[in-house]
Amino acid sequence: MKGRGTGDRTKATPPGSLGFSGPPGQNRTRQRRKIWVVQGLIALSLILGMQLLNMVAGNLVMPTPLSVLRQAIDMWADGTMGWALWESLAVLGAGFGLAATSGVFSGILLGGIPFLGRVFAPFVTAMNSTPGAAFIPLIIVWFGLYTEAKIVLVWHAAFFPILISTAAGISTANRDLTEMAQSFGAGRRVLFWQVMVPDALPSILSGLRIGAAVSTVGTVIAELTMAQSGLGGLMIAAGNRFQMDRYFAVVVVLMALGTLISLGLRQAERRFARWRVVMAEAR
């Protein structure tokens, strides 16, 4: 009798948490396998397509997959790629780290103090809608062409998306929960840190995910437009010399880097905000 309402809720739980096994599970694995097969076929046909294009149009238009692989092995073996990756990661990590801490902090302030939020709203919108590239000359004049300037560029790109979703998460905190806490006598501080901020965690995390994606873009742009360095520098150098196999080897690393970062952050989001996902599905 306890669980009359349980039925529809447990159905909404994602696989793994209260896991149903049996026929539906089997179905799902079969489907997943099918998806993998199709994905593999697409990847294979892309590689074949590269090869075909190479045979038709020549090395300059499209390198052969094999030569890209050979270049990649060479570049990893002689340390070029490893060093470039390290340089890029340093800029990316520092810039994103700064953007995350400052963005979340100011987002909490602007979201939690409605007066501040209102005052700064037009400025935040203006800054966020200006293309990041517009600030590159200014950043170069202020900070030079090297690591500091690149970090500032990355920070600038990621700061606003993080700030905006944090502020939105805090300012739309669940009214029912804040009223509940108040009715039990929660003071402002408890209300803020123990109800509103945790309630905003999912949107803070999705802000961070967007911020990380933007940071990767910002890193490459900084490496292209300022002193060439890292993966971006390596890529543009190869491109300028028409070494397309070398160029593609770098692009593959950039692709993998971006994918890994967003996968990792999605995982974090799922872990810290699982309840939000489940509740959204149950509604």
């Binding site: 029912d176 929960l177 009223e179 509940m180 108040q182 009715s183 039990f184 006598g185 929660a186 109800v195 945790p198 309630d199 965690l201 309840w275 939000r276 509740m279």
Partner: peptide, 17 residues
């Protein structure tokens, strides 16, 4: 709100985290 009173709401209003 912190007198000897306690509220019970229609939806339980539990902190989901």
């Amino acid at each position: 709100p912190n007198s000897d009173l306690a509220m019970v709401f229609q939806s339980a209003r539990l902190l989901p985290w």
